[in-house]
Simulated assay, not measured.
Amino acid sequence: MLKIAIIEDELAIRDTYKILLRENFSDVEIIGEAGTVAGAVKLIKEGAPHIVFMDIELEDGNSFQVLQNLRPYHFKIIFLTAYNHYAIKAIKFSAFDYIMKPVNEYEFINAVRNAIETVKTAPDSQEQVTNLLDHYQGSQKSGKIVLRTAEAMFVVNIATISHCKSDNSYTTFYLKDKKEVLVSKGMGEYAHLLEDYGFSRPHQSFLVNMNQIHKIDKSDGGFVIMENGAEIPISSRRKQQFLSILETI
């Protein structure tokens, strides 16, 4: 049976989580609850949960302070927040699930199912949490992003990403070594995350690493030729903005 810990400072919300878990998951055990940093650290160390629900803001601090006092990270995390918290970007870079309050039952159940599945295939969250804390702390960029596929999680150096291609709600990452990673998220989210790392969109369906462009081919409307030989079309609608960004590099 999988063990779950709830780190949340509002008692009524804790009760909601417990009801949803008991109604939808017969194979989990709620081992305890906490609403403070110290209480959360104690609960996780002593209870050794497989999955932890973590509200970002706690009574006396936040969940990142909890994580800084815990090692190793042999559990999966589902973050919870009442608003578009400044830490959401760090959470997205690390491929953790998060739920906005008030909790939507469908999103809650889906997040728990995802966590249960990843516990079975990849129970260790060490690299994910390390990347999360690197992005969260200070102004230093981690330089890495966690890409979660159906089979595994990849911690990728952002500088090694050549370009990304969108296919509806899926995104394929093409890496410098010719490796490809397919994730089940739309490219819009990644465009927002990677813009500070020199990525731009020459076309609605493509996101390119501007530092890996070999040349611009002006024939047939225009193409970006990447260092790995990939040819990326430039749409007429995005051409002027894209070339302007390229000139600033």
Rank of each mutant, 00 (worst) to 15 (best):
D55N: 04
E57I: 10
E57R: 11
L58W: 07
E59H: 14
D60Y: 04
D60R: 04
D60C: 09
D60W: 03
G61E: 13
G61D: 07
N62F: 03
N62E: 09
N62L: 10
S63W: 14
S63F: 13
S63T: 09
F64T: 01
Q65D: 06
V66E: 07
L67D: 11
N69M: 12
L70K: 09
R71P: 00
P72V: 02
Y73L: 01
H74I: 04
H74S: 04
F75T: 00
F75N: 00
K76F: 01
I77S: 07
I78C: 04
F79G: 00
F79E: 02
T81Q: 13
T81G: 09
A82R: 07
A82M: 14
Y83N: 08
H85K: 03
Y86G: 04
A87F: 15
A87G: 12
K89V: 04
K89W: 00
K89G: 00
A90M: 07
A90R: 03
A90L: 08
A90S: 14
I91T: 13
I91F: 12
K92N: 14
F93K: 09
F93P: 13
S94I: 07
A95Y: 02
Y98V: 04
Y98F: 12
I99M: 09
I99C: 05
I99T: 07
M100C: 02
M100F: 12
K101E: 10
K101L: 09
K101T: 06
K101A: 06
K101I: 08
P102L: 10
V103L: 08
V103R: 12
N104R: 00
N104E: 08
N104S: 06
E105A: 09
E105N: 11
E107G: 08
F108V: 07
I109S: 14
I109R: 15
I109P: 15
N110C: 09
V112R: 04
R113S: 08
R113K: 13
R113W: 11
R113P: 06
R113D: 11
R113I: 11
N114G: 12
N114Q: 13
A115W: 00
A115F: 00
I116F: 10
I116C: 14
E117S: 13
T118Y: 04
T118K: 09
V119E: 14
K120Q: 08
T121D: 01
A122Q: 10
A122W: 07
P123Q: 05
P123R: 03
D124S: 12
D124E: 15
S125Q: 06
S125I: 04
Q126A: 12
E127Q: 14
Q128G: 06
Q128T: 05
V129A: 06
V129G: 04
V129H: 01
V129Q: 06
N131L: 09
N131A: 08
N131H: 11
L132S: 01
L133E: 02
D134K: 03
H135D: 02
H135K: 07
Y136I: 03
Q137T: 08
Q137V: 02
Q137D: 06
G138L: 07
G138K: 02
S139H: 14
S139V: 13
Q140M: 02
Q140N: 03
K141S: 00
S142A: 11
G143F: 09
K144Q: 05
I145K: 00
I145E: 08
V146T: 12
V146H: 03
L147S: 01
L147M: 06
R148Y: 14
R148N: 15
T149N: 06
T149G: 09
T149R: 03
T149L: 08
T149F: 02
T149W: 05
A150D: 15
A150W: 15
